[in-house]
């Protein structure tokens, strides 16, 4: 901005270009603030675990509230529709605390499986990090075992194939829930 333009600016107030620039600056600031806030929210959301307090406490309080609501509504059990919605909602709320369930011969150990898979993943990641940090990489007995296992998979491509039929899964309807 030149000397004459500055003098005019002092006399007449900010030029229209300056007003637009100021507006753009404010919009940019608002957008940056929103991005920062979104980043913070995402970081917080990552730490929310439905199996740990405070979410687990809130879930169980909600279950208690549902039980009280059912009791307050007369605690009727005769028509199915009088209690089934309460039971379904309560069941969904306590789902993260159920360790596993079984239907007939099919049993799923949810929590145990999750923990084991998480441990296995952590092991693999630790090993990968260690191997990445040591510079030159040499074939260790573990890697050799892994490659041999992979070799068996490649050889299996040439095996005869047959349709798969489950042999151990029975189909009776008994069910069991373990928590």
């Amino acid at each position: 901005m030149g000397r004459w333009a500055r003098a005019l600016h002092e006399l007449t107030g900010p030029a229209p270009e300056d007003e637009r620039a100021e507006l753009r600056r404010r919009v940019r600031q608002r957008y940056r603030r929103w991005l920062r806030w979104r980043r913070v929210l995402r970081r917080r959301a990552r730490w929310i675990d439905p199996g740990k307090p405070p979410v687990s406490v809130l879930r169980w309080l909600a279950v208690l509230g549902i039980a009280l609501a059912w009791w307050a509504s007369g605690s009727t059990a005769s028509p199915l529709s009088a209690w089934l919605p309460y039971a379904v909602i309560a069941g969904v709320l306590i789902l993260p605390d159920i360790a596993g369930f079984a239907v007939g011969g099919l049993r799923i150990d949810m929590r145990k499986t999750q923990e084991e898979v998480a441990r296995l993943r952590q092991d693999v990641n630790n090993q990968a990090r260690a191997s990445a940090s040591i510079g030159p990489i040499f074939i260790t007995p573990e890697v050799e075992t892994g490659l041999q296992a992979y070799g068996r998979i490649l050889r299996a491509e040439h095996d005869p194939q047959e349709p798969y039929h489950p042999r151990h899964l029975d189909t009776d309807t008994s069910s069991e829930v373990r928590s």
């Binding site: 693999v124 990968a128 892994g146 296992a149």
Partner: peptide, 28 residues
């Protein structure tokens, strides 16, 4: 789908390790 093989967890872990080594080491 075609089921090719079953591996114990520790062998699969070794295979994942091998895959990492193969990916990170050009000679291997």
């Amino acid at each position: 789908w075609l089921i090719l093989s079953l591996l114990p967890g520790d062998e699969y872990r070794d295979m994942r390790r091998a895959a990492e080594v193969v990916a990170s080491s050009p000679p291997v």
